[in-house]
Design a protein around this nucleic acid. Sequence first.
DNA 1: CAGTGGTCTAGACCACGGG
DNA 2: CCGTGGTCTAGACCACTGG
Lengths: 242, 242
Amino acid sequence: MSRETGPSAQIVRVLADELAGLPSGTRVASEAEVGQRFGVGRAAARAALGELERRMLVSRIQGLGTFTRRRVDYLVAPGRAPSWSRTLREAGASPRTVVLACDAVPLPADVATALEVAPGTRGFRLVRRSHIDQMPAAWGVEWLAADLVPELPAALRVEESLDTILRETAGVRPERAWTRASVEPAPEEASDGLGCRPGDPAWLMASLARDGAGGRPLLSTERWVRADAVRVVLELGDGRDA
Amino acid sequence: MSRETGPSAQIVRVLADELAGLPSGTRVASEAEVGQRFGVGRAAARAALGELERRMLVSRIQGLGTFTRRRVDYLVAPGRAPSWSRTLREAGASPRTVVLACDAVPLPADVATALEVAPGTRGFRLVRRSHIDQMPAAWGVEWLAADLVPELPAALRVEESLDTILRETAGVRPERAWTRASVEPAPEEASDGLGCRPGDPAWLMASLARDGAGGRPLLSTERWVRADAVRVVLELGDGRDA
DNA sequence: CAGTGGTCTAGACCACGGG
DNA sequence: CCGTGGTCTAGACCACTGG
């Protein structure tokens, strides 16, 4: 263990230690600065910084520089509220969500089945991107029947949280009924929405929320979540164990 | 979309298409061959092959070459059997597990608590590595009380599957009671066991199995699973939804 | 031994973002 | 405009694998 394969491995270790204590968004030395400091060429310095990015310790932005980044914990477990906004706020982050599209359309067959309504029922197709500390972190499509919140577009201009809108306007209590999650290299469609490069690891999460009172399906979502922005933790259990 | 940032992006697309149909383990062109074929230098060819590795389409082994690789699906859901071997065999893979350590020791406090026995109770600390198609895929520690299978070391020399041993020797019916899973850059400890490089994305899965009849805790595990070897899919749900 | 991937240097041009 | 990261070339040495 701890084999040295070259100078850059040592640089990675030194920089990773130094970064450990810094707040999120702090500027990190540029490739040229790292090269001068450790007496290596640009390629070695670049390899070291690239390794830090692969380990999700920094983000590198062309034209801007390299910055420390934190991963926010996002616990998904039965019985927990399905709200992205609230979950992240409780974790100390400042989530922002922007609406990219909010179209009233007939629900496609598979969505209608999941929402337990007749195919072709009017609904909303919502495409949104969520940011954490100004960085894109999640992107995806959400579907819901139109009769739940007929004035959804107007409501979204006032309140970002779909969970809150459903509670206060539709008078329902959304609960996580079903979720499927995995990690995939982001396809181009997703990396565009996430502002990352194709192939970067990302969570693909599909879920269905039901009304706590009555059990009516409320919301069907399929979202991509950047793995370098959110540490998704999934918990399956009978509740007896910590 | 589909912006061209350089020759290597095009090479990636071409090679990814060609690889898509090949069986797992097929040899892929070397860096030199790719460079000659596409008329680029070794750096560009290397970048393209590295990108394919990042996308989990190939494995690259120093001194050997580059080979296609498949990811095996591993569905984790409530009610599903917790057996690694059986789950993967059903997925069409040939799992092998080697025992790295099997020590009879007093169970440490946290494990004893999880297994609901008195601290210091005699138990087995099992360290194992699992392979899929001869490639290391999982590694980790498993704990169980010694009275369940007093002859565990001998039993493991005959039967690889801990699930089978528990069923046939201890007469219990292991069921997944609790699981926590996330994805982390593999720390050095884990990357050694997994035969990958530190920082490669890997699943960290902790779980507890209970006896289906009686509910006694049987097995507490903490395993690392290579994300490029296994496509872990987690499902939380009430069973009403597909 | 030859061939593979892993690392590095030196130098170049480009794309991007901010002043 | 300058500095940033992204890409590329040409060339070198090394570590590892198999025959």
